[in-house]
Simulated assay, not measured.
Amino acid sequence: MAFFSTLLVILSSYLHYKKNILARSLKYDFKPKALFIKKNPKNSKIINFKHYNDDLVIKFKDKFKNFSLFFSLFKLLAYGILVGGFLFLQRQNLLFIAGYLSGISAFLMGIFAYMLCVKNE
């Protein structure tokens, strides 16, 4: 239960951030291919970024965009399944805290091992 609910949380975060990155990159006619491939292309474009809002005053619209970037409906549903699974197991007297935490940590350890394997290639 813990492993699959953690998988759902991380998968929802990945899909939401990927969607937002691709949507924002279309404004600038730039598709960030480097996010999805290992090697950078040889003929990559040089992008010059423009500075805006140098006084560091964040507008309400920008605050709302950042808030909605972090909290999506799918991600909140995934966290709800994580908590709901915990409560379901507790009410059925099947909850073993060490097992639940090891299910969550097993998935996270797998992610770190994968990152190390990819980094070494």
Rank of each mutant, 00 (worst) to 15 (best):
K19E: 11
K39Q: 06
L7D: 03
F3V: 03
F49Q: 08
N66Y: 12
G110C: 09
S12C: 05
F30W: 07
Y14D: 01
D29L: 03
D62P: 09
F49A: 06
L76P: 05
Q92W: 10
A113H: 15
L35A: 02
K31P: 00
N120Q: 14
F3N: 01
K27S: 00
K50L: 06
L26S: 06
K42V: 07
I97G: 01
D62A: 13
K65R: 13
H51C: 06
I10Q: 05
K18I: 10
I81P: 07
G99S: 13
F74V: 04
S72F: 08
I111N: 06
L7C: 02
H16V: 03
N120R: 15
A113S: 15
I37T: 06
T6Q: 06
Y114W: 15
N120H: 14
G85T: 09
Y28R: 05
A2P: 04
V9K: 04
L87R: 13
F86K: 03
K33E: 09
N53L: 07
K27I: 02
E121Q: 13
N20G: 07
V9L: 03
C117Y: 15
F30C: 00
L94Q: 13
E121K: 15
N48T: 12
N53F: 12
A2Q: 02
L7N: 04
A98Y: 14
L22C: 05
F67E: 04
R24G: 06
V9M: 04
F64R: 14
